[in-house]
Design a protein around this nucleic acid. Structure first.
Length: 601
RNA sequence: GGCCCCGUGGCUCAAUUGAAUAGAGUAUCUGACUACGGAUCAGAAGGUUCCAGGUUUGAAUCCUGGCGGGGUCACCA
């Protein structure tokens, strides 16, 4: 018995309209929702939309449908009508079967197979001139989680990372290191590779600003000074050398980048993130360049007198966009064209999702229009920009060049330290080994961070206050983790095992379900729907808030009806079943958010 | 200035995409640990959903116009 109850109701309603009113009722008129706790019933049918078809008042219509459903649908035992809302009561048997069927299903809620096509999702996409910061953290967590959710919903998901390892910003770091670095390495400095290079990026900016100030002092206006400063000219020369494959430049570049990759790898590992494939812009930009050349020949693009190449998007309401500089070097868009083509060749996906901040909305509009409309590539219709909002600090926006960033590594370390301090204070880990304890601090600290970020709607800007540490009580991961650990511990004590699981249907077949139990089952029942909705909306937030509601519901139920106290054996077993399936749901849901749930803590 | 996004109790966020009395956490106040995990639970207080119109059985949600905040309009990425 796995057919969803809402599909069953839906079909019966269609039959009702066919038989009594000879109409095919449009699907979007059938609105079924969970009944609010203050009313009697399990599911609610909203009947206002039916009045044009029945030509009767919503209440009368609702009553007619209620009669029909109770007579024709074996699982609906009762109904009531309040102001045009038809509340339906589902038979106990349905809920008992639901609990019995899923009690030992470790993959509850997940699509049984990959049946929905291939998706490539790009996220993270760091620059190699500085370490990852809080903005990247949001990006990485969203990308990782959405990939997991899509996969649970039945898509074949490939996670890719595009490393921006070339361009003027890299030259800035390289130049500063060559000039003032004295051959400093991660080993000699004791710094993580990405942090070391980031230091020189900041240094470049300081020295560059100083040069601009000097020039301005001689009466040169700012805009000119910014272009004439010797440092920026040197950096630009270096970029040309790099694109011309100058061996010295390439050697330095490879050395510095290798340090940065080591650093990134550690950060990803700590975050629990991995990729199926890593692309490097230094490999893809040439493909972009040749695409631009092709487009130039077929006259989709045009060349200006100085040699720069442009695309005219005024007919699409946008403006002209640069595709190649006058000196022949490529820009951001150039390589993104190449990367998209390469990625399509590699995977032939139905969709390509880009997890990139909303500051680049315009860029992705342009990218899609060029590939899809201008170049006529059908597959580009599957490009989707998953745009997320910025993480703001109380002091305003983060600026990496000005050092007002929250560093990803430091943030994670701090979360783990906080978790450690608070866990030790609770004094519940005395029997843990040192390794187990360390693992637990990490699970709690990083869980808190991940959940804090993922529970917010991706498209919205969010506020992060580094002054006050992230809560470990309330709507947080530790609260959910704690509940999971507690359920696990209780189930152990209740001597639940797989043998019982098989007997459960008989044991509990005749019990009556209480309202609080029913609410939990109803909530769990929705889990597969929530996964597919999260997947359709690209929103882990939906899932996160669902899990929180479930945990809260379970906690108040448990407080009121302890599972070990009940004397009636079948009732006790039923509560064990509810706890068991709740635990699975929490675990599976948190897994899709990339958050571990310990069995004890 | 053009275009895009956001505006919900003091603060941080929800609201199943148009449904019933707008929900949680936090902070404040009150109460509950001699069965099992108190990182918990129950209760109180806190709202003109930025403003003004409109659409309809129904609007935080949709449309129009304001106001406020952010983003973007680079031969930066």
């Amino acid at each position: 018995m796995n057919i969803s109850i809402s599909i069953l109701i839906n079909q019966t309603i269609c039959n009702f309209f066919e038989q009594n009113y000879q109409v095919n009722i449009p699907q979007d008129k059938i609105v079924i929702q969970k009944t609010k706790p203050e009313f009697e019933g399990d599911f609610t049918l909203v009947c206002f939309g039916f009045t044009p078809f029945t030509r009767k008042s919503p209440d009368i219509t609702a009553n007619e449908i209620g009669e029909f459903l109770t007579n024709n649908c074996e699982f609906i035992t009762d109904f009531n009508v309040i102001k045009g809302f038809l509340n339906l009561t589902i038979a106990n048997k349905y809920w008992i079967d639901f609990a019995s069927d899923n009690i030992s299903n470790a993959k509850f809620g997940f699509a049984p197979e990959l049946s929905k096509g291939k998706i490539v999702i790009e996220f993270s996409s760091p620059n190699t001139n500085k370490p990852l910061h809080l903005g990247h953290v949001r990006n990485n967590l969203l990308g990782h989680s959405i990939a997991a959710i899509l996969s649970a919903d039945g898509f074949d998901v490939k996670k890719v990372n595009l490393i921006n390892d070339r361009g003027i910003h890299i030259c800035k770091s390289m130049l500063a290191w060559l000039k003032w670095g004295n051959g400093e390495t991660p080993a000699t400095s004791g710094l993580k590779g990405d942090h070391l290079i980031g230091k020189y990026y900041v240094l470049f900016d300081q020295k560059y600003k100083a040069q601009i100030a000097e020039l301005e002092a001689t009466g040169i206006i700012k805009e000119i000074a910014e272009k004439q400063a010797p440092l920026i000219i040197e950096a630009q020369e270096m970029l040309v050398k790099w694109e011309n494959n100058d061996s010295e430049t390439r050697k330095t570049w490879e050395l510095l980048n290798s340090w940065v990759y080591d650093g990134f790898e550690k950060t990803y590992q700590q975050m629990g993130i991995e990729f199926d494939k890593i692309y490097y812009e230094s490999n893809t930009y040439t493909i972009g360049k040749s695409l631009v050349q092709e487009g130039l020949q077929s006259e989709i693009f045009n060349k200006k007198e100085d040699g720069s190449v442009w695309v005219d998007l005024t007919s699409d309401g946008l403006d002209e966009k640069l595709l190649l500089r006058g000196d022949g070097t490529s820009v951001y868009m150039t390589q993104d064209l190449g990367t998209a083509q390469l990625r399509h060749n590699d995977f032939l996906p139905e969709k390509m999702i880009y997890v990139v901040g909303n500051e680049q909305n315009y860029h992705f509009d342009v990218l899609k229009i060029i590939l899809f409309k201008k170049m006529g590539l059908d597959w580009a219709g599957g490009i989707k920009h998953l745009s997320y909002g910025m993480v703001e600090l109380p002091s305003g926006k983060m600026k990496s060049r000005e050092g007002t960033v929250v560093d990803a590594d430091e943030l994670m370390d701090e979360m783990i330290r906080d978790a450690k301090a608070q866990t030790i204070e609770k004094g519940k880990i005395d029997q843990f080994t040192t390794e187990e304890a360390q693992e637990l601090f990490k699970t709690i600290g990083l869980g808190a961070l991940k959940y804090f970020i993922l529970k917010v709607d991706p498209k919205k800007n969010m506020m992060f206050n580094p002054e006050q540490s992230i809560d470990l009580t309330g709507n947080t991961a530790p609260f959910i983790q704690y509940t999971h650990a507690r359920i696990s511990s209780l189930l152990d004590k209740a001597c639940f095992n797989s043998k019982n699981a098989q007997e459960i249907p008989q044991i509990i077949s005749n019990i009556s379900i209480e309202k609080s139990e029913l609410e939990i089952l109803r909530q769990i029942h929705e889990f597969p729907t929530i996964i597919s909705e999260s997947s359709a909306n690209y929103s882990p937030a939906l899932l996160a808030n669902y899990i929180y509601d479930l945990v809260k519901l379970y906690n108040s139920f448990y407080q009121e009806k302890p599972i070990l106290k009940e004397e009636d054996e079948s009732k006790r077993i039923f509560r064990i079943a509810i706890s068991q399936i709740t635990r699975t749901t929490i675990k599976n849901g948190m897994k899709l958010l990339g958050i571990e749930v310990p069995n004890k803590m």
